[in-house]
Write a protein that binds this DNA or RNA. Structure first.
Lengths: 202, 202
DNA sequence: CGTGGAGTTGAATACGATCAACACCGGTGG
DNA sequence: CCACCGGTGTTGATCGTATTCAACTCCACG
């Protein structure tokens, strides 16, 4: 049975999120944000954005977990990002330009999200510099995280990367099937299985 | 002999850059930018930012080529980015927060740069939304490029990645020593040498 | 029930790393 | 001016890590 959170709950979740992140936020500003964020429920495996199609929205995750991923020429799946509660996930690059999405986004678990469209970013400008700084900082943090991950991919073994992943997302790990962790780390499910076996031995 | 461009030339280069990227820019705005950008000449191999140290500036490259890179625990060098003419290079994440730099930046060739400090970003806010959008877009493009590179690193062979690199930076390749291309691709110089040999055969 | 996906294990393979030797400059100092 | 030297790139032989392919178990779910 799929539990459905009420929309009021989703918005109150959003309000708490922003009040935590931006304490000086006003009720008026929260309402303006709500007006541009549309609640939607996703079932496990349900696809929100499909690679190569033009779908101009992104999501704030209220509950559950989403992922963005690509399928390469060799039909292998590569996960770019996991987005559990309170994360933003979107392909801003293509969304803002109306280009085909560079990757797919779907739900790893049953999820509740708030969708936003291209109109969301102009809205931020009207809400003052604190908001722009906030989202700019989010983007910078993503960038820094992506750089660390790239270096790790270039320099560390499968085992080292798996251990890093465990440390980085200790709670998330338990919610993800192993084949997805493997797809995130860039190794085969078989290799991950062996790595885990080896770690268990010690 | 190290040719030194006059500072006037550097600023005129900057003006042309912005007039191309943001046609509606005014002379007043360009002057405001110039006031926050400080010319500096770099010799080949000269270090601008040293990993783990707090150095609160970034650079716009007028001439020559810079690179950002990290040294991992195994003493291997990994290049994050090359920045030839008209590129911005900095560690915004640590610069804005006064944190130790996540990576080093040095000059691959003799170079002329314009340095900016943490005061540069507040300045942009005063220059209007077009500037914020412009730099936001730059950051988004970097992010998209980094994602493509991550996927490529996870899914493609050394040879495929080298060919991609050739296509992506056809002119730059000739200016870079092979060991740096190897450090960017995440392979050893020996492997790159073999890849090139193999490609030459066909 | 029983069926198909997820995870595990084994054996053979491939790709790139490592270590070592050598050729080829380009720059420096005698 | 030339001799030398360190860094760069090349080539060969060997090794290690992860992939591939295949078989099997175990649940979760219809």
């Amino acid at each position: 049975m799929f539990y459905k959170m009420s929309y009021e709950d989703q918005y109150s979740h959003l309000r708490i999120y922003f009040q935590t992140q931006l304490p000086e936020i006003t009720d008026t500003q929260v309402e303006a944000l709500q007006a541009h964020l549309h609640p939607r429920a996703l079932r496990r495996n349900e696809v929100l954005i499909r690679q190569s199609e033009i779908e101009r929205h992104g999501a704030f995750v209220v509950k559950g977990c989403l992922r963005s991923y690509v399928i390469d020429k060799k039909d292998k799946e590569h996960i770019i990002q996991f987005a559990p509660e309170n994360w933003w996930i979107s392909d801003q690059h293509s969304m803002l330009r109306g280009l085909p999405a560079a990757f797919s986004i779907d739900a790893v678990e049953d999820a509740e999200v708030l969708l936003f469209g291209p109109d969301f970013f102009p809205l931020l400008q009207t809400l003052g510099p604190a908001f722009q700084t906030f989202f700019h900082t989010l983007l910078q943090n993503s960038m820094a995280a992506m750089q660390r991950r790239l270096i790790s991919t270039l320099s560390a073994t499968a085992e080292e990367r798996y251990v890093e992943f465990l440390q980085m997302y200790p709670t998330l790990v338990q919610r993800l099937p192993q084949r997805m962790i493997a797809a995130y780390l860039g190794i085969t499910p078989e290799s991950l299985s062996r790595v885990r076996k080896e770690l268990a031995r010690s």
